[in-house]
């Protein structure tokens, strides 16, 4: 290392320089005014409340128009009453638990597989030209089209559902990671190299965090695909004594219970939105950290 002499005794010039630099820093530091947590929460909530209100009132308007008899298309009040009644039963909660378990396992597996494939493809030219467009092709394939094959291969089983959830979500996650890595500025990679980041250290400290915005976008999309595949799967693959959200939906249709059916649809929508909100918050936090959110607006 270079000889490090102890800092010289501060001279008058040093003091002047310190003051000048401190002055310039004070003038140049961008000011950010953070709004309070309460006003930010409220700011994010009221548009959603208005949107929900609009949807519910249009729904009620269609019911009142008499387009379909109420036993086929019940109004929101009746549907929510049915939902509250259902929420008092054990089967309802067991169904949600089983569905969420399937979603969690399938999505986790898709993350592992998608990440490994995405990373491998982003690193290798051969893989990219070979597998790259295949991934996009898989992504655009409707997951329900996989079910006949999945049922042939795995019969009506948990594995059949898992298979389709993973194959629905993994391509989006892989593509998100590939896009994220492709969009890392080359300067960051050079800076990492100069600092001595190689191999796994480079992946862990520069590539992965650098690719994070694209990766999170891929996870968000992957979740949407996983949730869709899971619902399709639960409608088709119904296993005895394993209640699920999709199975309850199918059951209500078989019973011509329109209110029960719509109640389950509300549940599916609510879960989808809730998980998406988590990804949205993660995405926003990442962008805010990096100064990609316009605070002046």
């Amino acid at each position: 290392m270079a000889v490090e002499t102890p800092p010289r005794a501060a001279s008058v010039e040093d003091d002047v320089l310190d003051t000048e630099i401190a002055g310039l820093d004070a003038l140049e530091i961008p000011r950010s005014e953070k709004s309070s947590l309460r006003s930010r929460l409220w700011g994010g909530t009221w548009p959603k409340l208005i949107a929900i209100g609009l949807v519910l009132s249009s729904w009620q308007a269609v019911v009142w128009s008499g387009w379909r008899p109420p036993y086929l298309l019940p109004g929101p009040v009746e549907v929510f009453e049915t939902l509250f009644d259902a929420a008092a039963t054990a089967t309802f909660w067991q169904a949600i638990l089983i569905t969420m378990q399937r979603a969690a396992v399938g999505f986790a597996l898709a993350i592992v597989i998608g990440t490994v494939i995405g990373f491998a493809v982003s690193r290798s030219k051969v893989l990219r030209s070979g597998v790259g467009s295949l991934i996009t092709g898989l992504q655009s394939m409707p997951s329900i089209a996989w079910f006949p094959l999945a049922i042939l291969l795995f019969r009506l089983s948990e594995t059949a559902i898992l298979f389709v959830v993973v194959i629905g979500a993994a391509p989006s996650i892989a593509n998100g990671l590939i896009t994220g890595i492709d969009h890392i500025p080359p300067l960051w990679m050079r800076a990492g190299k100069v600092l001595g980041a190689r191999g796994f250290a480079a992946f862990r400290h520069i590539v992965l965090p650098g690719a994070m915005p694209g990766y999170v976008a891929g996870l968000k999309q992957g979740w949407a695909f996983a949730w869709r595949s899971l619902m399709a799967g639960e409608l088709l693959v119904i296993i005895a004594n394993r209640p699920s959200v999709g199975a309850l939906l199918q059951f209500n249709r078989d019973q011509s219970d329109a209110a029960g059916l719509l109640a389950m649809m509300v549940v599916i929508l609510a879960i989808g939105i809730a998980v998406d909100t988590v990804f949205g918050a993660a995405d926003r936090a990442i962008r805010a950290r990096r100064g990609l959110v316009d605070t002046a607006a």
């Binding site: 310190d18 630099i21 401190a22 310039l24 820093d25 140049e28 530091i29 961008p30 950010s32 950290r289 990096r290 100064g291």
Partner: peptide
């Protein structure tokens, strides 16, 4: 002379900083 800015992220600093 940046000990007061250790916990700031790059986008919160000026170009010179």
């Amino acid at each position: 002379r940046l000990d007061g800015f250790a916990s700031k992220r790059p986008h919160e600093l000026s170009g010179g900083m």
